[in-house]
Simulated scan of single mutants.
Amino acid sequence: MSNLKEIKRRILSVESVIKTTEAMKMISVVKLRKTKDLLLQSKIYLDYIEMILLDILLIENKKITEKNKYFLEKKGKIQLFIVFTSDRGLCGSFNSSIFEKIHDIFQKKGNLHNECMFLSIGKKGFDFLCKNRKYVIYNKNCIESNLSNQKIISLVSELILGFFKNKFSSIYLIYNHLKNSLFQETIVEKFLPITAKDLKKKILEISYILEPSQKKIFNFLIPKFLNAKLLKIFWESTTAEYTARMISMHKATENAYDIKHDLILNYNKERQTTITKEILEIISGLESMK
């Protein structure tokens, strides 16, 4: 009888797990729809800024970038890597793939590991960097993954200022790109300095009237371009996170249903065994009375 009670308790426990995973799956689905819309809007905005910058570059025959501080390679050795992770777990290999990429970069540097600095957007990445003391953290305060436009603007301004002051020679972004609903790719993308190859979009073919000058407008647009690029990558990472969590919770729900099915079978077998045993005891008791 105690075995039956234990199985019944486990069935109730699995049922509560199913309710939790199904709820988390539905929440991820709702959030995924919102982030996909925001990602689409940020992509459209970034595309238009890239087109305008490329048009200005073509007007100037790319001479405008020769002495531009956003395009110049710095003499410093320190490289800053900004990693996009989640604040919470239960999202499959979303965070672990980022951690593996950080480890690979660190291993490639060999004895020059002091030339790498890391900035995490997301609690999981921050905790990972803090636990591994070999990684140098740029910002000791945790930056949560729920970034607003204002936070992104202030972060980009801080990064640009550090780049101009030669705190780091280059800045890279490490994030998960969602290729399809079943496959994510971890990408390392250069953020600063900018190269003309970063602007690969189609030309608008509009004749601009630029005031006060092409150089000032170009320098005004570049921070906007960097803000839009970081925002797009942030929403891309968030979309990949919610997709990974949705799939992870879906698989967890299916596994919980399988466990529940097996437990119910075991419960029925144990119950039948107990009933059979009781019937045999009754029959043997009747036989002894005769």
Rank of each mutant, 00 (worst) to 15 (best):
Met1Arg: 09
Glu6Cys: 12
Ile7Arg: 08
Arg9Ser: 10
Ile11Ser: 09
Ser13Thr: 12
Val14Pro: 11
Val17Phe: 13
Lys19Tyr: 01
Lys25Trp: 00
Ser28Met: 01
Thr35Val: 15
Asp37Gln: 14
Leu38Cys: 03
Lys43Trp: 06
Ile44His: 10
Leu46Met: 09
Glu50Asn: 15
Leu53Asp: 07
Leu54Ile: 00
Leu58Cys: 13
Ile59Phe: 10
Asn61Gly: 13
Thr65Leu: 04
Tyr70Trp: 02
Glu73Gly: 06
Lys74Gln: 06
Ile78Lys: 12
Leu80Ser: 01
Phe81Arg: 03
Ser93Asn: 08
Ser93Ala: 08
Ser96Tyr: 05
Ser97Cys: 05
Ile102Glu: 01
Ile102Trp: 04
Ile102Leu: 11
Asp104Arg: 10
Gln107Glu: 11
Gly110Ile: 04
Leu112Cys: 07
His113Gln: 10
His113Lys: 14
Met117Val: 10
Met117Tyr: 07
Phe118Met: 09
Gly122Trp: 01
Gly122Cys: 07
Lys124Gln: 15
Lys124Phe: 06
Lys124Met: 15
Gly125Trp: 01
Leu129Pro: 11
Cys130Gly: 04
Lys131Val: 06
Asn132Pro: 01
Asn132Thr: 07
Tyr135Lys: 13
Lys140Glu: 14
Cys142His: 08
Cys142Leu: 05
Ser145Lys: 15
Ser145Gln: 14
Ser145Phe: 04
Gln150Arg: 15
Gln150His: 09
Gln150Asp: 12
Lys151Arg: 06
Ile152Ala: 13
Ile153Cys: 07
Ile153Tyr: 05
Ser154Ile: 02
Ser154Gln: 11
Leu155Asn: 07
Val156Trp: 03
Phe163Trp: 04
Phe163Met: 05
Lys165Phe: 01
Lys165Pro: 00
Asn166Arg: 06
Asn166Leu: 07
Ser170Trp: 00
Ser170Val: 00
Leu173Trp: 03
Tyr175Pro: 05
Lys179Val: 15
Glu185Cys: 09
Thr186Trp: 05
Thr186Arg: 06
Thr186Asp: 04
Ile187Met: 12
Glu189Met: 09
Lys190Leu: 00
Phe191Ile: 03
Phe191Arg: 10
Pro193Cys: 07
Thr195Trp: 02
Ala196Glu: 15
Ala196Asp: 09
Leu199Ser: 02
Lys201Pro: 04
Lys201Met: 05
Lys202Asn: 10
Leu204Lys: 06
Ile206Asn: 05
Ser207Tyr: 11
Glu211Asn: 12
Glu211Arg: 11
Glu211Thr: 12
Pro212Trp: 01
Pro212Thr: 05
Ser213Phe: 00
Phe218Ser: 04
Phe218Leu: 02
Phe220Ser: 07
Leu221Phe: 10
Leu221Thr: 01
Ile222Cys: 03
Pro223Leu: 06
Ala228Met: 05
Ala228Asp: 02
Trp235His: 13
Ser237Cys: 04
Ala240Cys: 15
Tyr242Phe: 15
Tyr242Trp: 15
Arg245Ser: 14
Met246Val: 01
Ile247Met: 12
Ser248Ala: 12
His250Val: 00
Tyr257Pro: 03
Ile259Phe: 03
Asp262His: 12
Leu263His: 14
Leu265Trp: 00
Leu265Ser: 13
Tyr267Lys: 15
Lys269Pro: 02
Glu270Ser: 13
Arg271Lys: 14
Ile275Met: 13
Ile275Trp: 03
Thr276Met: 07
Glu281Ile: 09
Ser284Tyr: 08
Ser284Cys: 09
Gly285Ile: 04
Leu286Val: 10
Glu287Tyr: 14
Ser288Val: 02
Lys290Glu: 11
Lys290Arg: 13
